[in-house]
Nucleic acid binder design. Structure first.
Lengths: 246, 246
DNA sequence: GTTTTATTGTATCATTATGGTACAATAGTA
DNA sequence: TACTATTGTACCATAATGATACAATAAAAC
């Protein structure tokens, strides 16, 4: 976010938004055997934060989350799932915002809306890593991907939000079969297993993982992939959900 | 709630609360083989609603939910779990509130805070049915228990909230072993099975259910219960969670 | 007091799911 | 042509689950 954007944020028409309510998004991507989280560097500070925003009076909360993500990533149709509302009474962020305001030459009274206590709705998002261009968003504040197990100290309670998002994702992996939303259209069984191992934080036995996934009858086998290694070529699979699933 | 209480609600100091954010509680109890939900009859109308309220500026959201429940039931230390935030843009309830205001002789301008769009945080609560006296709360609006499968048409989107609470409870039964929070200190295996069957909406095989629950090593067997039936007396069990659980 | 009845606790079998090993198939490399 | 690393699948051992059988017993019927 450029200074100008920050100024607009602090000056924005608070009538247009629901006060004291925010959205924070934990965007997951899968790249090089790692589960990544998208973080935003707050204007000219060493602080990293989750991408977030506010809810317009005339939009659904779910739509607000989608809009916020679009503004950051330029991507539509991102898979989004609300997972928790964070509502501790001390969720006000006066110090950080005062510091940023000072940097961009803004003076704000004690009663500025941003100094109030905020309840934040946590969403997690699953994206196809290569399809997201983090520089293509409307907002110019620098973004970066971090390994979910190497997330730096974040502002506010954002580390806690990441943790809870990860736990929810782990539970959802088998329940909702959301893992495929982190992979491209076609993928090998090894890539899928690597994804599961990374998210769950455990090693799985290759043969049994393959048997279990195939027995679910949710994968269509396409052609073989001839590429690279000095070994048998793996098949490529495509996710075909059963009718009673999403 | 008496007319006086309703008047206080509409007149209350909105500065003291977070605007446009509410809490709705789905209170579950287990009685006579049925899963019951606590509903509130809205002041002199045929409308039933979930017990709910608002969040004070100086309290955690979780504490607000506990306070709201205490005001209704007079009970402390109720098991509470937040499960979803409902945030459709059309969640404003002008019609019903106008009707109630008319009944109690209140006139309110178009800009009254209650007419705004609200985001509501859904909590489900698990209580020991016989220990809750629904007439003992501070609020006098009439409450009643309804079979969760016979809930009447509720105001706003409250039927949807009940449905989502039930689904969350079903998933939590095995995951968090919360079922015991609906039973008294000691109970028979039959009562526990009946609870599971009612919540999950399926019939379970008695012998296998018993084997599964006992193998979890979370029950302590106490004395036998001699009471009633012309048959062998069942043992009474007490829930003893393992250390790595809550 | 004896028999009957309904329910409880447990044992046992069959079936399915899961953990773990073995091995043939094969695309590329030496 | 032999070798290597990985893949797909078969196979066995163990654990979990589905289903049936049966002895034990508190109260009611007689």
């Amino acid at each position: 976010m450029e200074t100008n954007e920050r100024q607009q944020l602090y000056a924005f028409d608070e009538q247009r938004y629901i006060p004291q309510l925010s959205i924070d998004c934990v965007v997951f991507g899968f790249h090089e055997q790692q589960l990544k989280v998208l973080l935003v560097n707050m204007h000219q500070t060493p602080y990293w934060a989750l991408p977030g925003g506010f809810i317009q009076q005339n939009e659904d909360v779910d739509d607000a989350a989608a809009r916020i993500l679009f503004q950051r990533t330029g991507a539509h149709d991102i898979y989004l799932e609300q997972f928790y509302a964070f509502g501790k009474v001390n969720r006000n962020f006066t110090d950080v915002h005062r510091q940023i305001m000072a940097q961009i030459g803004l003076k704000a009274g004690e009663d500025h809306w941003i100094f109030r206590r905020f309840v934040s709705l946590g969403y997690y998002a699953l994206v196809h890593f290569p399809e997201v261009d983090i520089s293509s968003g409307m907002l110019k504040e620098p973004c970066a991907w971090f390994d979910v197990h190497q997330v730096p100290a974040l502002i506010f309670d954002h580390n806690e939000i990441v943790q809870k998002a990860l736990e929810t994702l782990q539970r959802s992996l088998d329940e909702k079969l959301v893992g495929f939303k982190l992979l491209p259209e076609t993928f090998t069984m090894g890539e899928l297993q690597s994804l599961y191992e990374t998210i769950l934080g455990v090693r799985l036995l290759r043969t049994n993982f393959q048997r279990k996934i195939l027995s679910m009858q949710i994968l269509e086998r396409t052609e073989k992939r001839f590429s690279g290694g000095a070994h048998k070529a793996p098949y490529l699979y495509r996710f075909i959900p059963k009718l009673n699933q999403i």
